[in-house]
Amino acid sequence: MLNQPVFWQAAGLLVLSNLFMTFAWYGHLKHLADRPWWIAALLSWGIALFEYLLQVPANRIGHTALSLAQLKILQEVISLSVFIPFALIYMQQPLQLDYLWAALCLLGAVYFIFRA
């Protein structure tokens, strides 16, 4: 990964960090619904540690070539790209047309923030 361009290093780390964070934020809804909230919070906090161990280097690497706004939009696109399969496959939620509209809005954001 270290031989990859900065954009792809940052994007790869952000994808991995988003996988952890999505499970930290929403995984407990499937597996710990019958447990006290504080157990879910502690477990989520433990998972989120791994997210931060990937997210912080991703942003530091990315900021060497991308603006803060570009990093944020990249993060949001990746977040939605990770969340939709998570919701559909792991959480078994129905596919909604709103996912498409949200994706189109993010594509617009990508266009405006990355245009020359």
Rank of each mutant, 00 (worst) to 15 (best):
A40T: 03
P94N: 13
A11G: 04
A103W: 15
L49R: 07
A87Q: 06
S17D: 04
P5W: 13
A65S: 04
Q70K: 08
L71V: 03
I61Y: 10
L42F: 14
R115H: 07
M1L: 05
L13A: 01
I113W: 10
L19F: 11
Q96K: 13
V110P: 00
Q55A: 12
F23Y: 15
V82S: 12
L100C: 09
S81L: 15
Q4T: 01
V77W: 09
S79L: 05
L100R: 09
H63C: 02
Q70F: 07
W38K: 05
A10L: 03
W25P: 00
A65W: 12
A103T: 12
L88M: 11
Q55M: 15
W37R: 15
N18V: 02
F86R: 03
S17W: 08
P85R: 15
S17Q: 06
C105I: 14
A87S: 02
R35W: 14
W25K: 11
L2E: 08
L106M: 11
S79H: 12
Y26T: 08
N59M: 09
A58D: 04
Q55K: 09
N18P: 00
F83Q: 12
L95R: 09
L14C: 01
Y52G: 01
D34N: 11
L14A: 06
I113S: 03
A24E: 10
G27N: 09
R35P: 00
Q9P: 00
L88W: 14
G27I: 11
I47F: 02
Q9H: 02
I73T: 05
W37H: 14
Q92F: 12
A10V: 02
S44N: 12
L53C: 04
M91H: 05
M91L: 15
E51P: 00
R35I: 06
L29N: 13
E51F: 12
L88K: 05
L100N: 09
L66D: 06
